[in-house]
């Protein structure tokens, strides 16, 4: 594995009395696209805020490019592009003004990348960003990120408020960019189908801790949904089984274990499972399987 671009060690954070998470540790290797998935309130935006240097964690440390975020040198910040939730930008500027403003801060600024994307927008160059639609604003934010030519992109809920067309455009641009330029991306989104097209690795968070961190390919290959008819028997609650539920006569559970292992566990517990069916999942179903529906 190459050098980690992001290293978070033993992060803990509380809002007042409320614990968000404790001893959270993860790394993002160079050149990988990592998606942070979790239900509302599990601490995704908290993590992004810590990574952006806008929140001091209660405990632990976060390093980006080997530097502590809160004391990071301005030169290192040129290597990090940040997308704030809701594609927030300086809405009082026009497309031209905002490009002129940012260009002076970033030595590797790629004006063509920005204007290439802006041509798709069909808006007047002098139109203020505040008067654009949410989708158009997202493209301005994306264009600025691409033009910055940063080594690390941190994107908070990039698909928020976007219609399917703009979401697709955003994802495709970002995916091609990340692959061709070997960029590292750390992102969150509520739309998990988009993540599936984009991310190499994922972290799935539950309240207070990380449920899994692994390559998406491995997750989709090994995590399965099992359905069977238990005939009224009690399904054992073991850590290997996720989101166990019985609806009508049909039981459902999710597991990383192989069908043979699951069948063995169920049979040892006296649960009839002769009709056990295993199916592989897409990322959204895997997420639901790991975190539960509620």
């Amino acid at each position: 594995m190459s050098d980690p671009v992001i290293e978070c060690r033993n992060l803990s954070h509380h809002y007042g009395e409320r614990l968000i998470y404790e001893n959270l540790s993860f790394e993002v290797p160079r050149g990988r696209v990592l998606g942070l998935l979790g239900k509302n309130g599990t601490g995704k935006t908290t993590t992004i805020n810590i990574l952006g240097g806008y929140l001091e964690p209660s405990a632990g440390q976060c390093l980006i490019f080997g530097e502590e975020i809160r004391s990071m040198r301005p030169e290192t910040r040129t290597r990090i592009a940040l997308l704030i939730e809701g594609h927030v930008q300086y809405a009082f500027m026009t497309i031209e003004e905002i490009e002129r403003f940012y260009a002076r801060f970033y030595p590797r600024w790629n004006r063509d990348a920005y204007y290439g994307l802006m041509e798709k927008l069909k808006v007047a160059p002098r139109q203020r960003i505040s008067r654009m639609s949410c989708g158009q604003r997202s493209q301005v934010a994306l264009g600025l990120i691409l033009a910055q030519n940063a080594d690390l992109l941190v994107l908070d809920d990039f698909s928020m408020g976007l219609d399917p067309g703009y979401r697709r455009l955003f994802v495709e641009y970002l995916r091609d960019y990340a692959r061709s330029e070997e960029k590292t991306i750390f992102l969150t989104s509520h739309i998990i189908q988009d993540m599936e097209k984009l991310v190499d690795d994922c972290i799935v968070m539950d309240y207070g801790h990380i449920l899994v961190q692994m390559p998406v390919g491995e997750l989709l290959e090994t995590f399965r949904r099992y359905t069977f008819t238990p005939g009224g028997a009690q399904i054992p609650e073991i850590p290997e089984f996720y989101s166990t539920a019985v609806v009508g006569a049909q039981a459902e559970l999710y597991s990383f274990e192989s069908p043979a292992t699951v069948q063995g566990v169920l049979e040892r517990a006296g649960v009839p499972c002769g009709d056990l069916q295993a199916e592989t999942l897409n990322l959204e179903d895997a997420f639901i399987g790991l975190t539960g529906k509620y």
Binding site: G52, G53, P74, I84, V88, A91, F92
Partner: peptide, 17 residues
């Protein structure tokens, strides 16, 4: 305008002390 939608985050993220 800097505080609307927490835009100050953008300003503080710029590579400038």
């Amino acid at each position: 305008p800097e505080m609307q939608q927490n835009r100050l985050k953008l300003t503080l993220h710029l590579p400038f002390l």
